[in-house]
């Protein structure tokens, strides 16, 4: 997740739904079936995050799925390869670390599966990774239901117009249903329980690690810097800020009745995130099958592998 400064994020998810999906279908199917818009092979990156295939002006690339992002981005390498002229944006954002996002390019034809978007704007970020050519944020993802099947390497983008609650096609058991809040136009916040205490968490598939601020650890879990179970990992950059990062032997993280045992959540300084207490990164999220219904404001969760 990246903190905002001055926001200019272009069209909203609702507008993008019209612009992007093309074949807009505001009606649910009569028999409550789900309507897939794209069924994609996910590729797992070395740190566990995932990419999906896209086409940028007819060329194949991979974008990392970033539910914690504000805006869609492309790598400088892709921009150079495609010969795009970047333009200065009216405002600026901060990307990963301390990189300022203040330039964007316009892609004439951007495609995910069979869905095409015209004159799509992407900010130019400063990462360099041969497994990833950019990021896809809720600016696009939020126009759909997003079905993340990590264990089978599949990501489905599904029409949000379906019968309420009837989405858990992958299991014969009932899924845990969690209400979601959308923060800052894009971020998903959900209630979870760590070692028995409820905390609001941001769901961020763009983060390889999960973090809790010391502020939240003190407030909700009564853990402070003198806790003997706290182990200093070192002074490590997180979100562009170098400071002490601690390991702590958390017992459990619960999403409703789904339990993740011994979750790896690192404790960071308060300054790393102003408005976020707990960030759930891909290490934990990969252990689940997650269906995000942005429009319904619900998340459906089961263990990653279930009958």
């Amino acid at each position: 997740m990246k903190p905002m400064r001055h926001i200019w994020i272009g069209p909203s998810a609702a507008l993008l739904a019209i612009l992007f999906c093309g074949e807009a279908n505001a009606q649910q199917t009569p028999d409550c079936r789900l309507l897939p818009k794209a069924m994609l092979e996910m590729q797992t990156m070395p740190d566990g995050r995932v990419t999906i295939p896209v086409q940028v002006d007819g060329h194949d690339y991979r974008l990392m799925v970033d539910t914690g992002g504000y805006i869609n981005t492309l790598s400088p390498q892709l921009v150079k390869e495609q010969g795009y002229e970047s333009q200065r944006s009216p405002g600026e954002l901060r990307g990963m670390g301390t990189m300022r996002l203040d330039h964007y390019v316009t892609v004439k034809d951007f495609a995910i599966g069979r869905s095409h978007g015209k004159n799509f704007k992407f900010y130019v970020d400063d990462f360099n990774d041969a497994f990833e050519d950019g990021t896809l944020a809720p600016q696009v993802l939020g126009a759909y239901d997003v079905d993340l099947d990590f264990a089978h390497g599949k990501l489905n983008l599904i029409s949000p117009d379906h019968c309420p609650g009837q989405v858990t096609y992958w299991t014969k058991f009932s899924a845990t249903v969690i209400p979601i809040q959308i923060q800052g136009l894009t971020h998903i916040r959900i209630p979870v329980t760590i070692d028995g205490k409820e905390i609001m968490a941001v769901v961020d598939t763009g983060a390889s690690t999960s973090y809790i601020t010391m502020r939240a650890a003190k407030r909700y879990l009564k853990i402070d810097e003198k806790d003997p179970a706290l182990k200093l990992r070192g002074n490590i950059p997180v979100n562009g800020m170098v400071g002490p990062v601690y390991n702590y032997p958390f017992e459990s993280l619960n999403f409703g009745d789904i339990k993740v045992s011994h979750p790896r959540i690192q404790i960071v300084e308060d300054k790393v995130w102003d408005q976020t207490d707990l960030l759930l990164g891909i290490g934990i999220l990969r252990q689940l099958h997650i269906y995000i219904a942005y429009k319904e404001k619900k998340m459906y969760i089961t263990p990653a592998l279930t009958d």
Binding site: P36, H152, N156
Partner: peptide, 17 residues
Amino acid sequence: MKSIGLAALMALTVAAP
């Protein structure tokens, strides 16, 4: 896109358990 049930599609595309 045709209105095809996702579960049916998934049954075709999901790899071995």
